[in-house]
Write a protein that binds this DNA or RNA. Structure first.
Lengths: 194, 194
DNA sequence: TTTCGAAGTCAACGGCCGTTTACTTGGAAC
DNA sequence: GTTCCAAGTAAACGGCCGTTGACTTCGAAA
């Protein structure tokens, strides 16, 4: 019989900060792929190489843990790269080609959102943070009249595309080439940006 | 102390077909507002005025119940009205003004989808049924080259708008007038339809 | 009115999950 | 090497949920 999971891991030394980080990373991945309900505290703890009790010790509760996950994801995962030229095309490429496995990727906040749509507490956390982070940045990049509404429309399109492309995966998307999707998406994004 | 819930209800006579229908209605409402995980069999049964055991008797299991809910919703809730003129504008009005409380409304399939995004079994049911109902109808109305991909893009936009407008509700959408949203959405829908 | 099958209920089982309490262990400081 | 607090674990509790099997009740047919 081979070694157990725990001994296969690098067996991190006792380091509260590093352990905290490992838990947050594991929680982000679980939340982005499974959503609030299906992401269990025991699973997250096992991914991080610790016990469920320790998770609650550090973050108070499951809700506290995922609140910090969402806040961090919204702070880190800036949807926009540095240059603001070709905004529609940039955004389109992010959601078409962005890997879903990178826990700090720009796609993560979208997956977090749509996998937690059924959880009122998670939605509350998103609403509170979104307006003053991603949407504000987007609105500044867009500018002009109705910048706030247009920014929300852009976010809506990105989220909708993400749910179809990364979760539902209808036949039409599976068959289509990536560049075809980029072209269509950036075209309708441009219609919103103006 | 007032009467109990059961006596406040019309106390439907023993009618298997009617009871079945009542359970399906209640399940549809619960699934559309709470998603697969949070919609409990006991709650659904109570809404329909029966016991959880009877629900499992009629539908075999929770999964069987919601499979039928999804299939029915996709069959009934045709996104498109009869006339095919101004398709973008029609669709935009549906998701902007469509009430979320009507269990047979055209908006229901979208809410079912985005509230069940975290549940793999529900996603599987959607994928299987979507391609041969809503997406096929949409593609026929759109026509031309890449009709299938364009139809999926339209569904993505509608779903994304629904999650923002009916679930997340950012400030920008709360402040905006309905007609402004219809204008923006139909414009970017038109960019996809071509 | 009696009968009998279908409609519906009741209560319990087993499992999973978030949380808590008491305990053990590691490692740095002296 | 001893001490001692923080890091981490083990185990259990209580609650909720889906499911099941045995029981009860309605209502139509005879």
């Amino acid at each position: 019989m081979p070694e157990r999971r725990a001994s296969a891991r690098p067996k991190r030394k006792r380091d509260a900060a590093a352990t905290r980080e490992a838990i947050l990373e594991a929680a982000t991945r679980r939340l982005a792929t499974q959503g609030y309900e299906r992401a269990g505290v025991r699973e997250v703890a096992a991914d991080a190489g610790v016990t469920a009790a320790l998770v609650n010790r550090y973050f108070g509760s499951k809700e506290g843990l995922f609140a910090e996950v969402i806040a961090r994801a919204l702070d880190m995962g800036h949807l926009l790269r540095d240059g603001r030229a070709n905004l529609a095309d940039q955004l389109a490429r992010v959601v078409v080609y962005g890997g879903e496995d990178a826990p700090d990727g720009v796609l993560t906040p979208l997956l977090l959102l749509l996998h937690s749509a059924a959880e009122p507490r998670a939605i509350e956390l998103f609403r509170r943070d979104l307006d003053r982070t991603q949407l504000r940045l987007l609105a500044e990049h867009i500018g002009g009249d109705d910048a706030a509404v247009r920014a929300a429309m852009v976010l809506a399109q990105l989220t909708g595309f993400a749910i179809l492309h990364h979760v539902l995966r209808p036949e039409a998307f599976a068959d289509a080439r990536g560049e075809k999707l980029v072209a269509l998406l950036s075209k309708s994004l441009a219609a919103c940006i103006g």
